[in-house]
Write a protein that binds this DNA or RNA. Sequence first.
DNA 1: ATTTCAAGTTGTACTCTACAACCAGCAATG
DNA 2: CATTGCTGGTTGTAGAGTACAACTTGAAAT
Lengths: 167, 167
Amino acid sequence: MTAAETPDETTVTPGDRPADVAVETIQREMTAFARRARASAGRMHPELSLVSYTLLGHLEERGGCRATDLATHYALDKSTVSRQVSALERTDLVERRVDPDDHRVQVLHLTETGRRILAQVTDSRRTAFRERLADWPEEDLLRFAAYLERYNAWQGAGAAPAAENGK
Amino acid sequence: MTAAETPDETTVTPGDRPADVAVETIQREMTAFARRARASAGRMHPELSLVSYTLLGHLEERGGCRATDLATHYALDKSTVSRQVSALERTDLVERRVDPDDHRVQVLHLTETGRRILAQVTDSRRTAFRERLADWPEEDLLRFAAYLERYNAWQGAGAAPAAENGK
DNA sequence: ATTTCAAGTTGTACTCTACAACCAGCAATG
DNA sequence: CATTGCTGGTTGTAGAGTACAACTTGAAAT
């Protein structure tokens, strides 16, 4: 429709080389994915938002850590983490234990419930991903995983030196 | 840390096969990316949120479409789209033209400004992505792009049969 | 003409988020 | 020890993004 929409080529100027096209595609697809992720995650598990999920995951992986650690690791404001943690505590998924060495800090730990819910959501998410990737040859799965890791591992030169899952 | 954290194996049950590990990784990395995307996009372009950007992109790609089309395509509520479009109109990035055939519908079009801003943001995003992918061999770029497309193209069997550009 | 349907808008509410102001411990200094 | 300053966390406030439900208006079907 409306072919008279000024089909000027200068508007976007996608590079001509295959690599440029690929970068373009990567950008587009990553963006599309990101746009959907939150909502779809929320639909799947109304009980545990994407953020809560990753927070809980970090807690389990580390076996407890401080709110500040979560904040820096995920590049979130400490107030955000504070509220998230409050919510998680209210729903009895995490508990706070005041650090005896420093009464300012409170080490966060998963509760049994938290561990259970996390496992449950993880499982459900895994199922969804598996279904989605069911017909992929193993070789492609491995490569795709490697690419994603590589992509995410990139540390922006000038970017905030914080964040990133070092582990 | 805290090895006394009940290291029960049943908690996560990651499959042992390489493919399972890969799926796990894909899930984790896609999630990590999604979590950051919005914020980083916002930091890069305070003028155009990730959503606005994709909306504008769709408009350009299609050369105008209805709000409902945007809603179904992006699986957003029509009220959400309505408000987004309002904002885009207020900032003079899109304009509405009432469809002469059906006075209910208003076809959305990019304005000149909209086209310009979109191109500008697209360019800036492309630069960022290129930088990030600078040291990737072309072969990997092509494969990564293909994987992402394939991943995103997946239509959940039971998912909403709506969406996607029929046209 | 009346009912039904589709496109959009508006009211309301909730989540996620940041920033700024603040409080409470710890640490260093005189 | 008292003062100053830093760090971990909370709370007030604000804004984006979103959904759902109720409503308006125009089109279509009967």
